[in-house]
């Protein structure tokens, strides 16, 4: 029994991790683009970007998943999208907005004097960015990013609303069979993933502990 439950849950875990990985892969760079938009000197662009971020961060992720999945069909009569694709798209949009705010905080948190000191020493703008400010930005964003990563791992459970068979959905099927322990077993998997993430992020933070 344990073995068959384990295998079923592992199957679900693969979907969970795939969603997690793809979200990071696309949302990390997209978030940077959005953060540039929200810091743009062009006021209309800034306004549009900030409005989008407000809407995305201000509404439930579960609602967004449903809108992305059912919206195209109900609004335009299009066929239902692939469930998993819809999930990835929603997560990327949602998380890139959160990431953008973290990037913005990291970028704006580096004192402008750092950039000026580099420029005055005859560095180009790109040298200043890569040699002076980048590492300081990374140091600032690692802790809040870590929080988001861990939240993301758990948020993947929300895709059950459109029946993507991730690990929590897989475990739920056992309730109908009158079994409760697989639910606790699921928790162990989440804890293991987040445990590894916590260790990795802690290691990264420690690597940058040598400067303030």
């Amino acid at each position: 029994m344990l073995l068959s439950v384990t295998l079923t849950l592992l199957e679900g875990l693969a979907v969970t991790l795939e969603l997690f990985g793809l979200t990071l892969l696309f949302a990390l760079p997209l978030g940077l683009v959005i953060s540039f938009g929200s810091m743009s000197r062009c006021a209309p662009l800034r306004w549009v970007v900030k409005t989008i971020v407000w809407v995305v961060r201000g509404t439930p992720l579960m609602l967004q998943i449903m809108v992305v999945f059912f919206g195209p069909g109900l609004l335009f009569g299009l066929p239902l999208p692939q469930r998993f694709t819809a999930a990835v798209v929603t997560f990327v949009i949602n998380y890139s907005c959160y990431f953008s705010e973290i990037y913005r905080g990291g970028i704006q948190g580096v004192p402008v004097g750092q950039q000026e000191a580099g420029l005055v020493l005859g560095m180009t703008k790109s040298q200043v960015f890569f040699k002076v400010t980048l590492l300081q930005i990374i140091k600032r964003i690692v802790p809040p990013m870590g929080n988001e990563f861990i939240t993301l791992v758990k948020d993947t459970a929300l895709v059950r609303v459109i029946s993507v068979y991730e690990i929590t959905w897989m475990g739920e099927t056992y309730i109908r069979k009158g079994m409760i322990w697989p639910l606790f077993y699921i928790a162990v998997f989440y804890l293991a993933v987040n445990g590894i993430l916590t260790l990795l992020l802690g290691w990264l933070e420690k690597k940058m502990d040598y400067f303030k």
């Binding site: 004192p111 004097g113 750092q114 000191a117 005055v120 005859g122 300081q136 400067f211």
Partner: peptide, 17 residues
């Protein structure tokens, strides 16, 4: 810029170096 050097009030040393 290289004709001039500038020492800032707030030092602005690069913390990671």
């Amino acid at each position: 810029r290289l004709h001039f050097g500038l020492v800032f009030q707030s030092f602005n040393l690069f913390p990671q170096y």
